[in-house]
Amino acid sequence: MNNPPAPTCPEIFRAFFRIGVTSFGGGLVAYLRDEIVTKKNWMTPDDFLAALEIGQTLPGLNSVNVAIIAGRRLAGARGAIAAATGLVIPGVVILVILGLLYVRFRDNRDVAAALAGIAAAAVGLLLQVTLKIGAKQFLNPLDLFFVLLTFVLVGLYHVSLPVALFLIAPFAIILRRPRKEEAK
């Protein structure tokens, strides 16, 4: 095995910055994999999958969590900071510009109509992502029960999220507890 030399923090920042600029339309994890595994050869596919598993299990955005883990593997704490800031900063700058334009032109009839269309389309996107990720859960009666319970409590009755999690999660996890016969 001849590993490529460990990248420096500026190199890490540049690589993640490039993703931060080009990744229009979400699906960030795919962009990250392409850059880190395929182009730069900084992680093996298995290492990336392991990082993604941690990133999905813990709270926070999956993409930012993966950036933190990958950056840490490559160059420690400073690598993690370089990766996360590189990923986030371009989008923030663009959002500031969009936000200032919004504040300036929100009362314009044309802009308001376009924004209404954009918001309506964004809801459709979120619905599609939810249905796609949740396909398995919607088809399993027990999972569907927890999906609807969470939706009703948090979405309709505004039960506070930490309260809802502490009420529902223990039951949901216990019902999926490891069984003896499944253990090796």
Partner: peptide, 17 residues
């Protein structure tokens, strides 16, 4: 166990927006 809760929360997000 957490997967359906996440989906329920995302569905609530669709509703909220």
């Amino acid at each position: 166990g957490m997967a359906p809760i996440t989906i329920g929360l995302m569905l609530a997000g669709v509703y909220a927006v």
